[in-house]
Amino acid sequence: MTTKDTPMTTQTYVAKITVPTPTATTLWMRGFLPWQLWRFVWLNLKMLRMISLSHPTRRDPSAPKAP
């Protein structure tokens, strides 16, 4: 049983709700196209930046050679 279908007595409320669940607004925003279009651009830019950080680094010429 999860938070959603737990009967709302005080006792089960305390015992079961351990994680946040989205509000109606949050759920709506997840599908609201103008907002999602913006998030698409934002996520892509962030991922591209992360990929550029992940590019191989060059060996430090002063570092000892690999074994």
Partner: peptide, 12 residues
């Protein structure tokens, strides 16, 4: 660079 979100954007 450690983030997460749910939505249609992720699906795209």
């Amino acid at each position: 660079f450690t983030f997460g979100e749910v939505g249609t954007a992720g699906h795209w």
